[in-house]
Amino acid sequence: MKHVIIISFLFFVSCEGWGWQPVDSDHDSTLNIFGLIVSEPDSSYGYIYVHQSLNLQDPENILISSDTVYFGPGPNDFYINYEYRSGFTVLDAQVTISNHEKEWVFANKSNYDWGMYETKYVDTSGTFQPQPGETYSLRVETDDGRMAQGSVTVPLRPNIREEFVQDTLSNRTPYSIPFDAVEDDGTFRLKTKAIYGNYACGANQVHLIADRTDTVWTSQVSDCSNSWWDEGEYEDAIQLEVLLESMDSHYYDYFIEYGNKNEFISFIMGSEGATGRSFGIEGGYGVFGAIATDKIERIFVP
């Protein structure tokens, strides 16, 4: 018995000191840009998120204020509302976009959402109207001397051959969306989606058009017999938007070619990660991509 006690004691004592330890790293914080230029038939815009990578010892969120909120008459009927900003976000960047004629200075604009301020850089002059086929250059500089730049060419606007698309589409039978063949390096993706907040089973579909010689997309008939929406609630015809996107290679590579691929995984109890990718960005991580779209609307009968 004496031996059992001694062994048990040794066993439990010996496991001490194997817990969590603070960790740091010597990584140089690097700018991480998400810049997107979108050219739609009825609107064109662009915005830039300027983020940075963090060291292991850096905080992910930084407390900027706290407020006591009372919700009742009792002395304990309150909670403290904390507001943070993301440690990843860079607020002091000078962001400019230019083409061969003009330069736009983007300014940061913050939104408060779910306890966190989200900041992106946008054109406040109202004159930034990116055009298909046009090349735009991005330059991001920060006060501490970091700089990233890149350029992207907005793909040519794709063209849905609207005259050949039926007026009323349905999930029950396949329907076809013809379009013109791709004429530049863009990759096409066709999306259908219910608009105005409606829902119908089979309305939302996405298809990547991998073969650039394709000129028609045919919808898939979805099995809606087991739809988790209550039967009868969404039987009315709805408005359907058919969107044909042309993506430039930066956008395609970042979000589709490598978007779901992790370079590093650790099967159980581990984590996943990547070495940091950049497409269309020099001097930092991230992507500077562009999309040009064409869209039509149709009636969709579930």
């Binding site: 790293s25 010597d26 983020h51 999306k191 996405v206 990547a274 940091g276």
Partner: peptide
């Protein structure tokens, strides 16, 4: 592991 970064993801399948 050298640091942390935010990668952007796109989603549209369910929201439309």
């Amino acid at each position: 592991v050298k640091g942390r970064i935010q990668n952007w993801k796109e989603s549209f399948y369910y929201t439309g």
